[in-house]
Amino acid sequence: MAYGDRKSERVNFDRGIPVYMMGIDGTWRRDCMMIDVSQTGARLLIEGSLEGLDLKEFFLLLSSTGLAYRRCKLVRVSGDQIGIEFLARDTHTKKKASKHRAPDQAV
C-alpha cells in the first residue's frame, strides 16, 4: 500500500514520535508511534489490536497531557500501521454559527 500519495510534503521520523489515539467520547486510548506526518495527515505504528475501536473519528494526542491534539479519521490500514487524515478544525461550530445568524446581520 503506497503512502506517497499525500497532498502535502511529509516529514519522516527515523525512530518515531510517541503519541496517543483516543476515542472522541474518551472511552478508549492507545499508545502508538507517529512514523511520518504532513499538513494533511500522518502514518502511525499501532501497539496492540485495533479490534473494537471506533476509528471513523478520533483524537490524535500529541502530548501526554492532551493539550496538543488533532481530530482525525482513518484512511487506510496496513498490518500494524494506519494512515490517518486530519479533519478541519471548527467546521461544526462555523456551520452552526452561520445557520443561526439572522439574514440581515453583517459578518
Rank of each mutant, 00 (worst) to 15 (best):
K95C: 01
T93G: 00
Y20P: 00
S38L: 03
L50M: 13
L67C: 01
S38T: 05
N12F: 14
A106R: 11
F86T: 06
F86G: 07
A102G: 14
R89D: 08
G4F: 11
D80L: 08
R101K: 15
M34S: 06
Q105I: 11
D31I: 00
K94T: 06
G41E: 02
M21H: 05
T91D: 10
E51V: 06
V37Q: 14
R76Q: 08
G23T: 00
L67G: 01
L87F: 02
R29T: 05
G66N: 06
E51C: 04
F58S: 01
V11F: 09
T40G: 15
S8W: 12
D5Q: 14
R30W: 04
S49R: 05
G66A: 03
Y3F: 15
I46M: 08
S63A: 07
K7F: 08
D54T: 00
M1C: 09
V37C: 06
V37N: 06
H100C: 05
H100Q: 14
G48H: 02
Q105V: 14
T93E: 12
G79Q: 09
R29P: 05
C32I: 04
A102T: 05
I24H: 04
S64K: 06
K99Q: 15
R29D: 03
K94N: 07
R70K: 15
C32T: 11
H92T: 08
R101W: 04
D25K: 07
L60A: 02
